[in-house]
Nucleic acid binder design. Structure first.
Lengths: 335, 335
DNA sequence: GTGAAAGCGCTAACAG
DNA sequence: CTGTTAGCGCTTTCAC
């Protein structure tokens, strides 16, 4: 190939002005059918494909949006990826996924770098400080998922995991458990704080004695420590910050010969891939991630296209309900 | 904010020409320390961030590359994502992930849409036809992973799963198995054909009787059918096209009360997340996906920067070895 | 309905 | 070392 054909080449070949060619290709209404046809023909005779950056530079729009996640390989985000992807595709946008590897700095860098490359972004579990987030949101339309803050000038959607945890507590209480442990997540985790805040009042109401263990990293390898701590604490049930942690707990318990659920019940959070693969299958709080993704993309699109509920700014976060999925890892409290 | 500051604003504020500002910001060598400092100061006083599309348009470089996968939520690709991501970051590139949802058309569309947005792309398990692939590769530097073709004018890296399968066969033979089944993948899968081709000669050499079952979709829900077929075939071991399928087989076997590995041994492929989570833990062929990712990114970068082994074109595919991970799902053949 | 021309923000020669 | 000057390929007024 000598050189990618440009719109100019197309126009020349069709015998029209570049502006006409541009219109014919992008706004098929205002040009005569005949001309449009000629241009179209010339375009694919030449194998013409528009330059994204040129188009972006002159129009200010890229029709692509970013989904920024802390870790693409965390199964928790799978549903989100699918949900935003589906809605975005319907809206004619291309989705690009950016992995920040749990780093606030990488997240900020990506967001800055993306300016001009994407029309907007959906931020999942953003690690940014409120201030930095607000600052970046001023430059790029943003929708946050599982993250919000008073100062945040962007729509957000929240997964109501705290209420799911309360359901888990009720479930355990109904099985006769009295002493349960909560294997907490990272101290810096906003989600963990929300969960703990919901846990204590519910425990009180249900007459449950809740011991907080941890904090633990939300990964499988942190499970053994949590399992040992739970056994030590003498509880009959343990609720984990997330499924990954619960997987590790299950493994350790198995290795120590502690029978689940006969001696100890285990509850996870998120219902990720694998939760029904482990033995015993994990009772867990399921989040409607795909719905969350669709909703987030929806909010972003209406913001981008000026449609929808005014600006969406200052709106209360959309809160999505979760539900408890009861599997084999929970059972009656030991006598 | 009224308007994003441009390089021009920075230059004005610093009292220099835009070109000087440009150089000060991007090539800190050729400008006096003093001027560079002034420009830098002006830039962040204004909160200047360069426009990606303008830069791309005029320089022809975007410093971002795409990783195109059939399904981002398939754990098989996790290592790849990490590998390319790491190498790309080291090289100063931004990685964007594109999910084609197993559709050749979406893949082609993405690739065309990406032209001008990315400098190149790593294609994992491309679904495109040879012709279409060659055509697109002419427009955009591409490196293929687990896909190659005679006509392909792009470097490629292959995972040598076939040899891993042969190791699995040897393992089974050494355990006394004589009759084994292969639960095959999609008929259109290039990988499956390669695997079958390796399977038969090895089986012959080892004196194994191999029955091919399927084809099955490479998903967990296809497992039960495969499990039933294996039982019906009267084999003592079954090797699955991939781990997902093996998971489904394990589940079904458990449900039917068939003891693994006492009555039937099961081997998977890929060693994905979850393989050591299931019970019994799955014996499987592990692929060095992270290495593959690094290598692919490496090849792409040297192609982009004109470094490395000439063009890399016409090069033989790089082949990466796999190894068998023996866990609890395989054992001695039943007497 | 169609053409001419003016940039979008930046980089890259080419002069000094 | 720094300023001037062209564009990169496209969209978009503004005329005709």
């Amino acid at each position: 190939m000598s050189r990618q054909p440009t719109l100019r080449d197309v126009a020349e070949k069709a015998g029209v002005a570049v502006s006409t060619a541009s219109r014919a290709l992008t706004r098929p209404g205002r040009i005569s059918a005949h001309t449009t046809e000629r241009v179209r023909a010339a375009a694919d005779a030449l194998g013409y494909t528009p330059s994204a950056s040129a188009r972006a530079l002159s129009s200010g729009r890229t029709t692509t949006v970013a989904l920024v996640v802390p870790d693409v390989t965390n199964p928790f985000y799978f549903g989100l990826v699918r949900g935003t992807g589906a809605r975005l595709r319907e809206g004619g946008y291309v989705q690009v996924l950016v992995d920040t590897e749990e780093s606030a700095e990488a997240e900020a860098r990506a967001l800055v770098g993306l300016r001009g490359t994407v029309d907007g972004a959906v931020l999942a579990a953003s690690r940014l400080t409120d201030a930095r987030l607000a600052e970046l949101a001023a430059d790029l339309p943003i929708v946050a998922v599982n993250r919000t803050s008073p100062s945040l000038a962007a729509p957000s959607v929240l997964i109501d995991t705290p209420s799911g945890l309360v359901q888990a507590l009720e479930h355990l209480a109904s099985l006769g458990h009295r002493r349960v442990a909560y294997a907490s997540g990272p101290r810096t985790s906003w989600s963990d704080r929300r969960r703990q805040a919901a846990l204590h009042p519910a425990a009180e109401r249900l007459g449950l004695d809740v011991t907080v263990l941890g904090p633990y990293a939300p990964v499988r390898t942190a499970g053994p420590a949590a399992a040992d701590a739970a056994v030590q604490a003498g509880v009959t049930a343990v609720v984990a910050f997330n499924d990954l942690l619960a997987f590790g707990i299950l493994e350790r318990l198995d290795a120590r010969g502690v029978d689940v659920p006969a001696q100890l019940s285990v509850v996870g959070c998120d219902d990720v891939f694998g939760a029904d693969l482990v033995r015993p299958a994990l009772t867990t709080v399921a989040s409607p991630m795909e719905r969350a993704g669709r909703l987030a993309a929806d909010l972003l699109i209406s913001r981008l296209e000026g449609t929808g509920p005014s600006t969406g700014f200052g709106t209360e976060p959309a809160v999505l309900p979760t539900h408890l999925v009861i599997r084999a890892s929970t059972g009656p409290a030991p006598a």
